[in-house]
């Protein structure tokens, strides 16, 4: 295997990994704070893609067919607010009433929420795939013989910026500290005067907004969206979160990069039809061999 090919595989892996990372962060944040596997999270990503689609369709007359990265960033920010709001409503309506209920009930509710979002979109937009009103340009540059488009580079940079922003917010701000405290002991947080409900709401907003951002980027990059597009990526993000150690935010990003690279190399080795088999094979491997993931601490069941 020559060096250029190797580098190309690494770049491809990092690119896909940055998508997975944005979605995995929301998964991991929500799990960290209320120990809920939010299976509707992938559908929030899908919703992000559809929000972007709608906004671009409405604005098409103004923008024209070829959108610049700057326009897309603005669209992305609006879509983030929209998906963040949906995430927040989802928590209020579907999850909060079940706080304190058995974990299985909440999990089933999450699966229900996922279907509701998917088929809600199927009803509103039709079951057939939609073509994104804009496509990102294909201009590329080469580094050491490997090819990367400017659009890919820009999207990776946006993803990295969002991830670093989140990491710093969680580490340094008052809200971030409260999130970490709630993930350890929500009841003690109540006694310390933290409005736990409002912090949980904020967590859902942020996680959903990040997934929405990934959705818009994916729509603009791959050009085609449909109401089930969140299903596989939701599972992939879950896999990434498990590989990194679920509940751990840096772990989620690390897991996403690892998963992206594994897929990239696995595809090169076995052929692209094996990609998902390969990825979920790793999920099973990690769940059996190292369920705490690469950076995760031992999960202790709270009584």
């Amino acid at each position: 295997m020559d060096f250029e090919y190797l580098l190309q595989l690494i770049l491809n892996g990092l690119f896909v990994g940055s998508f997975y990372g944005l979605v995995a962060l929301g998964y991991s944040m929500v799990y960290g704070i209320i120990k809920l596997l939010n299976f509707a999270h992938g559908d929030i990503y899908m919703l992000g893609a559809f929000s972007g689609y709608t906004l671009l369709t409405i604005g098409a007359g103004v923008i024209g067919g070829q959108a610049s990265i700057a326009v897309l960033v603005v669209i992305m920010l609006i879509a983030m607010v929209l998906t963040g709001t949906v995430g927040l409503i989802l928590e209020r309506v579907a999850y909060r009433p079940l706080r304190g209920a058995p974990r299985l009930s909440v999990l089933i509710t999450a699966v229900g929420a996922s279907f509701a979002l998917e088929y809600g979109i199927a009803v509103s937009f039709g079951p057939n795939p939609r073509v994104y009103p804009v496509r990102l340009g294909n201009e590329a540059f080469t580094i050491f013989g490997a090819r990367l488009t400017y659009a890919q580079l820009a999207m990776m940079l946006i993803a990295v910026a969002l991830m670093i922003g989140l990491d710093q917010a969680v580490r340094r701000t008052r809200s971030g500290r409260a999130m970490r405290a709630i993930s350890q002991d929500p009841k003690a947080c109540l006694l310390m005067g933290i409005n736990v409900d409002s912090v949980i709401t904020r967590t859902f907003f942020i996680g959903s907004a990040l997934a929405g951002a990934a959705g818009v980027m994916s729509g603009a990059y791959y050009g085609k969206i449909d109401f089930l597009m969140g299903f596989i990526i939701g599972l992939k993000a879950f896999t990434a979160a498990v590989i990194g150690g679920i509940g751990n935010l840096r772990g989620a990003v690390l897991g996403a990069i690892v998963l992206g690279l594994l897929e990239s190399f696995g595809t090169a080795w076995l052929g692209s039809e094996w990609r998902d088999v390969f990825a979920f094979g790793f999920l099973i491997l990690f769940l059996t061999v190292r369920p705490t993931g690469l950076l995760g601490e031992r999960v202790t069941e709270r009584v």
């Binding site: 500290r177 970490r180 405290a181 002991d185 003690a188 006694l191």
Partner: peptide, 11 residues
Amino acid sequence: VPEGRRIFSRL
């Protein structure tokens, strides 16, 4: 200050 201290052990 609750019984069992309930400090945040990972902060």
